[in-house]
């Protein structure tokens, strides 16, 4: 019997999938941090209005769109937490007590992140999801006027993650971002602009 004719290499990733992993990381983070920040002062339209691109339900749908086509990269187990989060947010839409379901959305996204970190074998694939999360975190904290130390910490975490993915990034943008982080008065809109321009996908 010939089991060795085919070579399976786990460390190759298509351009399309690298972008999907990146956006899966970003959108899942957007749902997570977005919901955690509003759960104390809940506004239904903000989290559950599908037509609003800033809503959690919209971001979660985009996370799902990426996850469903990444089953082979991330695994069914990791995928399943995104699927469970979708079912919970759909329950929240119909519920008189949406917050309890939104808490489960947060729990499932947290489980997704843990599972992704623990089970995705391909270092680059795992790294790209995390990089997406880190970029989104800096972006969201800056937009949400988080305090200076939190933003600086998130920028440090992003810089640490950056070289571990094999994705190309713009060195000059990175330099400007480091300068902005060290600035005495934190210029949040400029941080958003730089962090959004950091990653360059191949055309």
């Amino acid at each position: 019997m010939d089991y060795d004719g085919g070579k399976i290499n786990m460390s190759i990733l298509s351009r399309e999938n690298s972008e999907r992993l990146f956006w899966l990381g970003r959108y899942s983070e957007r749902v997570y941090t977005g919901l955690r920040s509003i759960i104390g002062s809940y506004a239904k339209n903000f989290s559950l209005d599908e037509t609003n691109p800033e809503s959690a339900v919209f971001s979660l749908a985009r996370a799902y769109d990426n996850a469903i086509v990444l089953r082979d990269e991330i695994g069914s187990e990791t995928f399943s937490y995104i699927q469970l989060a979708v079912y919970e947010i759909n329950k929240a839409k119909k519920s008189l007590t949406p917050l309890i379901h939104l808490q489960k959305v947060i729990d499932n996204i947290a489980a997704f992140c843990g599972m992704a970190d623990d089970s995705i074998e391909d270092e680059h694939a795992r790294g790209i999801i995390k990089l997406g999360k880190r970029i989104e975190r800096v972006d969201l904290y800056s937009r949400m006027n988080a305090n200076v130390e939190d933003i600086r910490r998130e920028i440090r975490r992003l810089i640490y993650r950056l070289p571990k993915t094999g994705l190309r990034y713009d060195a000059e943008t990175l330099e400007r971002l480091i300068m902005l982080a060290n600035d005495d008065s934190l210029k949040r809109p400029e941080i958003v602009k730089e962090v959004e321009g950091l990653i360059k996908f191949l055309e």
Partner: peptide
């Protein structure tokens, strides 16, 4: 096994 058996050399 089916893919590997006919594989002409390379990825499946």
């Amino acid at each position: 096994r089916t893919m590997n058996y006919v594989n002409t050399g390379g990825l499946s």
